[in-house]
Structure formats: C-alpha cells, structure tokens
C-alpha cells in the first residue's frame, strides 16, 4: 500500500472558476456581493428596496438563486435593471460555474455592481466561492439571536451582517444586543447594519455601506 500526498482543495475546481471570475470583475471594475441568509430573512425585499433607490443610470445587475420558480427575478425585474434567475433544481447553493454560465448572457462592460442573491440557506452557500468581493449575511429578528453561534461558518466569513425586519422587534423575543455580541464573538471584525425594508428604517446605513465598500 502506498500513500501519496494530494493536498488539494475538495472544491478546487469551483475555487479556480471563482478566482477567474474575481479577476475579471476586478479588471472590469465590477464590485460583487454574495447575499446569504436562511429562507425568508428578507433578501429579495432588501434587494427590491436597494434597486428602487438607485438612479436609472446605475450600472447594477442582479443574479438571484432559488431551487425552483423565477418569482424573485420577476419581482426584481420591475426596477428596470438587468436581472437573471438561477434555478438550481434541487441544489441548496449557487456555485461559481452557475455564475459564469449566467454572466455569459450579459455584456459585462455595462455592469459596475453585481448583486448575487444566494439560495436561502445558512450552511451550504458558505463553502462555495462565487468570485465575490464580500459575503453579506442577513439575519431577521424573527429568527433566533443565537444564530451566529449555531452557524458560525457564514458569520465568520461575512464582512457585513444585516439585521433585518427590525420593525418586528416589539413583537418578537429577539435580543438585538445579544445578536450583535454573538456575531462579534464569531467574527470580531464583522460590520453590522440594522434595518427594516418595510418601513425603510436603516436603509440609509445599508446604502452608505454599499457605496463606501463598492468604491474600494
């Protein structure tokens, strides 16, 4: 019996495609975000509010992932910017090849900001690099304030935590200080924005983060 060292990443092929995408995004000056949350945390509504606030000449495009249906793409297309649905037909995450394939349909010279809405899931999307500049994790106050501890992988890798649906705080037992503290335990450097896409509270802070981060 011979043991031969292999020392390869299991997702090396995904990482290779993601690295090529990242290089192309940087060459073209495209800033790319990968939005990750559990199902129903408010990714699509946040994107709708984000697109609604952009000037019509903003060079933004959205890829939205779901296991089935193009409902989200139809919701997002109303704002006049390019949107494509990625239907994974069962897969619980997006991978770099899906991004590469869908981007082939677009003229990338018209895009400055690429927003990717991942499939609703806090575990699986964490492993797959999509070539993004940053991962954003969204946690709604209708969930548990201990989620950063239960799903440390994504909170560890995210640059920004969006605490969403804060208009519901009077009706739910969510402890926002505990949630912030738990997120910082897992990732001391994580930035945090609190907002409600329904009332608009905190959206300015999200837009400010986006504008500040996108120019770097």
């Amino acid at each position: 019996m011979t043991q031969i060292p292999m020392e390869r990443k299991v997702l090396g092929e995904n990482d290779r495609i993601a690295a090529a995408l990242r290089e192309e995004f940087h060459r073209r000056g495209i800033f790319c975000l990968n939005l990750i949350s559990s199902p129903g945390a408010g990714k699509t509504l946040l994107l709708e509010k984000t697109l609604e606030g952009f000037a019509p000449d903003r060079r933004v495009a959205v890829l939205t992932g779901d296991i089935q249906t193009d409902n989200d793409a139809r919701r997002l297309a109303r704002y006049g910017f390019p949107v494509q649905q990625i239907t994974t037909a069962g897969a619980c995450h997006l991978d770099a090849r899906m991004i590469e394939r869908h981007l082939a349909n677009w003229d990338l010279s018209t895009i400055g900001l690429l927003l990717i809405e991942n499939v609703g899931n806090l575990v699986c999307p964490t492993s797959y690099d999509l070539g993004e500049d940053a991962k954003v994790v969204i946690l709604s106050v209708a969930e548990g304030d201990d989620k950063p501890l239960k799903y440390p992988g994504i909170f560890h890798r995210a640059e920004l935590l969006v605490l969403s649906k804060i208009d519901l705080l009077p009706y739910v037992p969510f402890d926002i200080a505990a949630a912030r503290d738990n997120a910082r335990k897992v990732n001391p450097a994580i930035e945090i924005v609190e907002l409600s896409s329904t009332t608009g509270a905190g959206l300015d802070a999200w837009r400010a983060w986006l504008d500040r981060r996108a120019v770097h």
Binding site: T2, M6, E7, R8, V10, G153
Partner: peptide
C-alpha cells in the same frame, strides 16, 4: 486582545490517497 487573526478551521481538503500499486 480581541485583535486576533484567522488561523484555521475552514479546511475542506483532500490530504492524501492510499493506493495499491
């Protein structure tokens, strides 16, 4: 200090193969 850096835990690697040659 809180100013510590990531040093491991994200691994998802194929380390080696064992073969009968």
């Amino acid at each position: 200090t809180r100013e510590t850096e990531h040093a491991g835990g994200n691994e998802l690697d194929i380390a080696y193969l064992e073969l009968e040659t």
